[in-house]
Design a protein around this nucleic acid. Structure first.
Length: 485
DNA sequence: GTTTAGGTTTAG
């Protein structure tokens, strides 16, 4: 016994499962449902997995406690299950958990850190597991495993009539009747459609009762029905959710318990219908998923202007979890430490720019997950610190800052109002006074050209009717672009 | 020593 080896698990390929055997398996998730209450004593998770063998195997997991269920957030996630029993149902092999069952889940994204998701206090994990996860990720990336399933869509891209998954934060909730609950959520993006607003009694609302008009425009009212009401009852405002198989419906809607006059009809409504078909359900995201919302909010140029800084709003943007412990420092310490460091601060908002989003140029670098907001102040030369920053790309930031662009533009512009040359920064500049033909000639030398004009001795961006950026042959309208290095 | 569900859309 003293020489007993550490336990070594062996994993069955999914095309070699024999009825009645108890096995350990690895698989890529191609379908899943959030755990739902069964008619028996347990919650039930339903999932389908596959592996290199291309065999797709349905799995049914019964556990009394939700935390013992597989922590699956999306198709492509990788699960490792210990002690599942193969049995035949409808002439196919399925896997059901059996005594001593445990499950660990991993993100399926190639190159992402291999971080086990489990509530088990101790679990086996060795270099072979690391390798297996990475192999499954690579294999899955080369396959079209779930091309037709619904995908996570931000509110800004929601299509009427479509089913989709929504990643969002719960701001408030209220019961509508015994079969329907209202969830007020946002994801930091603005839906182009007018949103249905459900009016409920204030005294039954949990969470913030009212929001500023600006924020209200970002909030989607989601009605969840039947079996989802029980799940919704346990949710606390502030929690981050993924709502699966949500349906956006345009046109008149009626809601039980409410008269039609309580609804603004003909608006886009969000319904989570009863049942669990197509994975319909509500999943609670772990803290490290908050970044998803923070970065989408930032990429959208999300700003809020509430008189009362709510704890929920605060949470959305300030409590970024960076996956490491870091002490909070004061703003003066940040200033002293110079460029290129990452800090945690907690501060009170005193003022913000821009008040109108089209006044800002947003540069979003998907590689470094960094958002740069170049504000109107920069063009007017009113400030030295022209860039409001998030993220961690000191090189790019420094190159912009070191150039002191507004000063440089003003200087060069006074000498030669036609062209300003700036080769080091990721942006080149084009000024008023040139024709389109001249600008097209400049395209050969400069990758990115932002048209600006002079007014009142200052430079300013054109309004939204003009392209804000010329990149090669492409013209970008609006105010956003992905920078590629 | 093993009931529950067994993917496949509400119809508000």
């Amino acid at each position: 016994l003293s020489s007993a080896k550490a336990p070594k698990y062996t994993y069955a390929k999914l095309d070699s499962l024999k009825a009645g055997s108890v096995v350990n398996v690895y698989g890529v998730v191609v379908f899943f449902k959030q755990p739902f209450k069964s008619r028996g004593t347990d919650f039930c998770s339903s999932l389908k997995i596959t592996d290199h063998s291309n065999e797709k195997i349905g799995c049914t997991i019964f556990c009394e406690k939700l935390e013992d269920h597989p922590k699956i957030f999306r198709n492509g996630d990788i699960v490792r299950m210990h002690r599942v029993k193969a049995q035949v149902f409808n002439k196919s092999i399925t896997l059901v958990n059996t005594f001593g069952f445990s499950v660990v889940t991993f993100d399926g994204v190639k190159g992402a850190p291999v971080e086990p998701r489990t509530s088990s206090r101790s679990f086996h994990f060795d270099p072979d597991d690391q390798r297996t996860v990475e192999e499954l990720r690579s294999w899955a990336a080369s396959q079209a495993l779930f091309a037709s399933v619904t995908s996570t869509v931000p509110l800004s891209a929601v299509q009427p009539k479509a089913y989709f998954d929504l990643t969002c934060q719960l701001l408030a909730k209220a019961p509508v009747d015994t079969t329907c609950t209202l969830l007020r959520v946002w994801d930091g993006t603005r839906c182009p459609h007018t949103l249905l607003k459900v009016i409920v009694e204030p005294h039954v609302t949990e969470g913030q009762l009212s929001f500023s008009k600006e924020r209200e425009n970002l909030i989607a009212d989601v009605l969840v029905y039947d079996n989802h009401v029980e799940v919704a009852r346990k949710l606390k405002p502030g929690v981050f959710l993924r709502i699966y198989n949500l349906r956006a419906i345009a046109g008149s809607s009626t809601v039980p318990g409410l008269t039609r006059s309580q609804l603004q009809v003909d608006h886009l409504a969000f319904h989570l219908h009863g049942g669990t078909s197509y994975g319909r359900g509500i999943g609670i995201l772990p803290d490290n998923k908050k970044n998803v919302i923070c970065s989408s909010a930032a990429a959208e140029g999300w700003m809020f202007n509430d008189e009362h800084f709510s704890s929920v709003g605060w949470c959305l943007c300030s409590e970024r979890s960076c996956g490491h412990d870091m002490q909070k420092v004061t703003l003066s310490e940040v200033k002293r430490s110079g460029l290129g460091r990452v800090h945690h601060v907690r501060a009170q908002l005193k003022a913000y720019e821009p008040h109108r989003l089209h006044e800002a140029l947003k540069l979003y670098c998907s590689k470094s997950l960094t958002v740069y907001l170049l504000t109107q102040l920069m063009f007017e030369g009113k400030t030295k610190d022209v860039i409001l920053l998030m993220g961690n790309n000191p090189q790019l930031l420094e190159s912009i800052k070191a150039k002191n662009i507004s000063k440089e533009i003003s200087r060069l512009w006074s000498r030669n109002p036609s062209i300003i040359k700036s080769t080091k920064t990721p942006i080149s500049w084009y000024l008023t006074g040139s024709t389109l033909e001249e600008m097209c000639q400049l395209m050969a030398s400069y990758q990115n050209i932002i048209p600006v004009r002079a007014s009142g001795g200052h430079l300013s961006l054109f309004d939204l009717s003009a392209p804000f950026l010329f990149r090669g042959r492409k013209r970008y309208y609006g105010s956003e672009i992905n920078l590629t290095h």
